Amino acid sequence: MTDSRHGLPTRRTVAAGALGLMASPFAHAASRDERLVYVGGQADKDGQGVFAARLNLATGRLTPIGVVAPLLRPTWLVAHPRLPVLYALSETGYGPGEQGKVHALKADPATGALTVISTVASGGRGPAHMSLDGEAGGLMVAHYGDGHVAALPVRSDGGLEAPASVQANTGSGPGPQQQGPHAHAVLVDPSRRQALVADLGADRIFVHPYDAATRRLGPAGDASTDVPPMTGPRHLAIHPNGRFVYLLSEIEPEIRTYRWEAGRLVLVQALPAGGMPPVNGAEVAVSTDGRFVYVSIRVEDVIGAYAVNETTGALLQGERIPSGGKTPWSFAIDPSGRWLLAANQGSNTVTVLARDPSSGRLAATDQSVAVDRPTCIAFPAWG
């Protein structure tokens, strides 16, 4: 029996082999109409780690593979754009003198299996977010625990070396979770000359000079931008045209649009992203065609959609629909643009929303899989 709107099977939540068992790397050969999906999460129990599944691009069916890398708290993942390599941080190292870890994992695109290439210290306490520079010669890591931002060289085999540089930002805000800097996201701009860091604790977007050849970050300069007190910057997204930057805040329910001009952020718009605080904004992403921006709001359990003014980058708020679970920590749009997968940390589910690439509208489906405390989703280009 199928759902007539999307040709999907009726509601099914798959327990994914009881979640505690390592998936067989040979039991699930990929077909041409499927894409590999990796899910990171906060689980710190034995047998947990990076979870893999396959998304059928024609039907939206999400089929679990299981845990393919038993890592501790792999809360953020990023895939190399060319090599079959996945990077996973371990959100650990909050104690004095401790550091988190980052793992480089070689993938078998046919099965989803992962094997460790290298594991290095992340450059700070409590890593929360990673991104690659445009040529994937460097991996950036933002640390919530101490506000550090680090640049790690990526070897030719995709493995990682120890941080080439670490910058320690300072600052605080009036909120109880703002007693010091908490770097929550880092992105390299399209020129590969600067790195933008959203810092929840400092109420600031730090802008660091970045040397892509040496993977070295310089101290944040006067291009850095303050936001109003108690905003709590969380995540950033850069428009595909490189001219607009979007910031989603965690404390104040707001999405801010900036023009990116000559290495500086110029505010275009500050738009409410939800109701009254605490709304708990989480993730922001731009569609690959640059026409739509999406956000996840954790307290309200919704995904919000916005249309983009192609001239100014300003947003026009559209629909807000349920994420299909509780506490949507993050989400990702598949490369075809037809499906949005939400990592619902509070309900231990990854759910599939159908997406109309023309209108940007989202619709519920009957597809979900059970994943222990999911927080991040990655679609590798080689999957």
Score class of each variant (00 low, 15 high):
residue 97 G to T: 10
residue 88 A to R: 07
residue 147 G to P: 07
residue 163 P to G: 10
residue 95 G to D: 13
residue 112 G to S: 09
residue 173 G to R: 08
residue 121 A to Q: 14
residue 156 S to F: 05
residue 90 S to A: 14
residue 139 L to M: 08
residue 115 T to Y: 01
residue 126 G to A: 06
residue 167 Q to Y: 10
residue 169 N to M: 15
residue 179 Q to E: 11
residue 107 A to M: 07
residue 143 H to G: 12
residue 175 G to C: 01
residue 109 P to Q: 08
residue 107 A to F: 07
residue 104 A to L: 04
residue 146 D to K: 14
residue 158 G to E: 03
residue 164 A to T: 05
residue 105 L to Q: 07
residue 179 Q to D: 14
residue 120 V to G: 04
residue 133 D to G: 00
residue 100 G to D: 02
residue 126 G to R: 09
residue 99 Q to R: 09
residue 171 G to E: 10
residue 174 P to I: 06
residue 104 A to T: 09
residue 163 P to A: 05
residue 179 Q to I: 05
residue 99 Q to P: 03
residue 139 L to H: 10
residue 162 A to Y: 02
residue 132 L to I: 00
residue 157 D to T: 12
residue 171 G to S: 09
residue 148 H to G: 11
residue 118 S to F: 02
residue 156 S to V: 12
residue 102 V to S: 02
residue 161 E to V: 04
residue 113 A to V: 05
residue 182 H to Y: 07
residue 110 A to N: 14
residue 130 M to Q: 03
residue 139 L to G: 10
residue 155 R to N: 15
residue 132 L to Y: 02
residue 119 T to W: 01
residue 137 G to V: 01
residue 114 L to F: 12
residue 166 V to D: 02
residue 95 G to C: 11
residue 101 K to L: 14
residue 146 D to P: 12
residue 89 L to V: 13
residue 105 L to D: 08
residue 112 G to R: 09
residue 91 E to S: 03
residue 93 G to F: 09
residue 110 A to L: 10
residue 92 T to S: 13
residue 179 Q to C: 00
residue 143 H to N: 15
residue 171 G to Q: 10
residue 111 T to C: 06
residue 138 G to Q: 03
residue 90 S to V: 07
residue 99 Q to W: 00
residue 137 G to M: 00
residue 124 G to V: 08
residue 92 T to V: 15
residue 109 P to K: 03
residue 169 N to V: 15
residue 97 G to D: 09
residue 157 D to G: 13
residue 162 A to R: 08
residue 137 G to L: 01
residue 172 S to A: 10
residue 100 G to S: 02
residue 160 L to T: 09
residue 145 G to W: 04
residue 168 A to G: 10
residue 150 A to I: 06
residue 118 S to G: 11
residue 178 Q to S: 03
residue 138 G to L: 06
residue 142 A to K: 15
residue 132 L to E: 00
residue 170 T to G: 12
residue 176 P to E: 03
residue 112 G to L: 08
residue 112 G to Q: 10
residue 96 P to Y: 01
residue 114 L to W: 10
residue 159 G to D: 02
residue 89 L to R: 07
residue 180 G to W: 02
residue 136 A to C: 02
residue 175 G to S: 09
residue 132 L to N: 01
residue 175 G to R: 06
residue 97 G to V: 07
residue 177 Q to C: 00
residue 109 P to R: 12
residue 92 T to M: 07
residue 131 S to E: 00
residue 175 G to Q: 12
residue 177 Q to M: 05
residue 138 G to C: 15
residue 153 P to C: 10
residue 135 E to G: 01
residue 118 S to W: 05
residue 133 D to H: 01
residue 143 H to P: 13
residue 154 V to A: 04
residue 109 P to A: 09
residue 135 E to N: 04
residue 106 K to G: 04
residue 182 H to K: 11
residue 141 V to R: 04
residue 155 R to L: 11
residue 92 T to C: 07
residue 151 A to T: 11
residue 167 Q to D: 06
residue 178 Q to K: 02
residue 89 L to D: 05
residue 98 E to A: 15
residue 159 G to R: 03
residue 170 T to V: 13
residue 115 T to E: 14
residue 102 V to C: 01
residue 139 L to S: 07
residue 108 D to I: 02
residue 140 M to L: 15
residue 105 L to G: 10
residue 129 H to M: 01
residue 92 T to I: 13
residue 110 A to Q: 14
residue 155 R to D: 09
residue 158 G to M: 09
residue 158 G to T: 12
residue 114 L to N: 14
residue 152 L to M: 13
residue 142 A to Q: 11
residue 126 G to T: 12
residue 103 H to M: 01
residue 98 E to G: 05
residue 127 P to V: 04
residue 175 G to W: 02
